[in-house]
Amino acid sequence: MNDTAPLATRTTPITAELLRGALDLERTGRGLLPHRLPAGARARCADGQLAMAESQPSGVRLVFTTRATTVELDTLPTRRVYPGAPPRPDGVYELLVDGEPAGRATAAGGDVFTVDLATGAATRERGPVATLRFAGLPDRVKDVEIWLPHNETTELVALRTDAPVEPTPARGRPVWVHHGSSISQGSDAASPTTTWPAIAAARGGVELVNLGFGGGALLDPFTARAIRDTPADLISVKIGINVVNADLMRLRAFGPAVHGFLDTIREGHPDTPLLVVSPIHCPIHEETPGPCAFDLDALAAGQVRFVATGDPAERAAGKLTLGVIRDELAGIVERRAAEDPRLHHLDGRELYGAADFAELPLPDGLHPDAATHRRIGERFAERVFAGRSAPFAPAAG
């Protein structure tokens, strides 16, 4: 905070024209809540985990053009607290000026949502509006972006500046819609612009719409319809880890569910480059089915780790592992590609494989840390956006 900076006295209504990366905006009575699934999709599922994940604005950012040197944003974040587990870090808001990092902040306020991991019981304690202040910005016309926390539900209350604000015009960059799990949402990334999809988007020169949902990449038909109905120049779907984690289906159901998911997307995007990405390397589920569970011994020691509780012998009965899913996805894409030349496949182990795990292990057994997010994002950009034969290279579109 710079107390000598000009006062931000101009209030600009926060509208859809100033927001990117959200599929829906909800007026809550306290503020404006960005959603990453439309209302129709949310009405199709009462799962609290998905509701929480899709309301966490990963990839959602305020974007405007202004000469302002001081910007203030009032927000109402919702912090999650899990008694007995290590405290979660506060959500990070990142400021970019003309595409370059220009500041970070956290919000001191908002609601607290407490969840008992043993019973699932939850309580909410309401808190005050928080104010973020970015001062000392360059005194010239510039594009300003404020990236909202990727892992913290955030209601937007007010935007104030010391100069007029206008919506930033579209720059003609391709829109990339990506769907995946908590890894795609950004679990354990350092900040909203350093989730692996955000890193890949920056390197690929595209506009990101991140539909990564923690625990929610489950081949839900309403998610496929949301992708179908969202304008996109490039689409990728990362499938597998959540299906195993949840022990959701057997192999007999998995293949048709993937086909149905892709069929629905193709209804709205018949010619759009579409990439199917299989899971990254994750030792606990490579050959062991789910469900996944908390490691209770680790929790007792104040650490969060996950274990696979299935039996590898159950693969014979159709239970899914990451190895089974990778083989199935590769076969599905190979068979469909004969009639769909813009459908592509990427083995997730090209982004993070066994050798990477030896160097950069997954701290909790499931989720990559900040350094691994960067590696995955850079590799995705290299393999998918760069080179003439890359699935998302300009010639491919």
Rank of each mutant, 00 (worst) to 15 (best):
L262H: 08
L262W: 03
L262G: 12
D263Q: 10
I265K: 03
I265W: 04
R266N: 03
E267V: 11
H269V: 02
H269C: 03
P270M: 07
D271I: 10
P273E: 14
L274C: 01
V276D: 13
V277K: 10
V277G: 05
S278F: 01
S278Y: 09
I280W: 02
H281M: 03
H281C: 07
H281P: 01
H285P: 00
E287L: 12
P291V: 13
C292A: 14
L296W: 15
D297A: 15
A298S: 03
A298I: 02
A298Q: 07
A300K: 15
A300W: 11
Q303C: 02
V304L: 15
R305Y: 04
A308Y: 05
T309D: 05
G310E: 08
G310H: 04
K319R: 15
K319I: 00
T321Q: 00
T321M: 03
L322H: 11
L322A: 07
I325N: 06
I325P: 06
R326K: 11
R326Y: 01
E328Y: 08
L329E: 05
A330F: 07
V333S: 01
E334W: 07
R336F: 03
A337Q: 14
E339V: 12
R342Q: 12
L343K: 10
D347N: 13
E350C: 10
E350P: 00
Y352R: 05
Y352N: 04
A355S: 14
L360N: 12
L360F: 05
L362M: 10
H367T: 12
P368T: 03
R374C: 12
R374W: 09
I376A: 08
R379W: 08
E382F: 06
R383Y: 08
